[in-house]
Amino acid sequence: MPFTAHDDHSGASAEERFNAFVVARTPALSRTAYLLTGDAHLAEDLVQTALFKAARSWHRIEGDPEPYVRRILYTQNVSWWRSRRRMREHALPEQYDAATPAADPDLRLTLEQALGRLTTRQRTVLVLRYFEDLTEVQAAEVLGIGAGTVKSIGRQALARLRTLAPELAELVGEPAGGSA
């Protein structure tokens, strides 16, 4: 049964509904945040920030608060990536986004490690498309960008995974099917 931010005829106060939402949805939000950041501490910050903002704007949320909270997760993560200060404090994995020698025969990366070497935007698109199961249009709407941009970023992300970890090619498929 989906949560509602306001009166659901249960007689619960707004605070009680918020707390119930937190208890029920934090595990799922934590998974998404972890995949988005690739870092447990950043994921914790991200979820706590999203829930704090949701509490602050609870009066404006209509219906199910989860889309609102998730949108904060996605956009806040991109926002942090843009923050140089944040980058210095947390040494985000994007600093390794510089081209890694693709021909390094000793490079063997797990999917987790490879995700960590994508840009935040690439990783976010992959999470939205293949973890949240959103279409390109839905992902574009959530991120506030064009569907074409989502498609382009997704294709770049898959290509980069193939480059970073050829042994993962089986996971990400052939280039032609990258945006499926």
Binding site: V22, T26, P27, L29, S30, R31, T32, A33, Y34, L35, A40, A43, E44, V47, Q48, L51, F52, A55, L111, E112, L115, L126, V127, Y130, F131, D133, L158, E170, L171, V172, G173, G177, G178, A180
Partner: peptide, 25 residues
């Protein structure tokens, strides 16, 4: 296949630690 990617992402997500949300949020 990207279906495999989806499964792997689900698997990765399952091992993610559940965030502690402060009670005074």
């Amino acid at each position: 296949m990207t279906g495999r990617l989806r499964e792997e992402l689900q698997r990765l997500g399952e091992v993610a630690p559940v965030v502690e949300v402060p009670a005074d949020t």
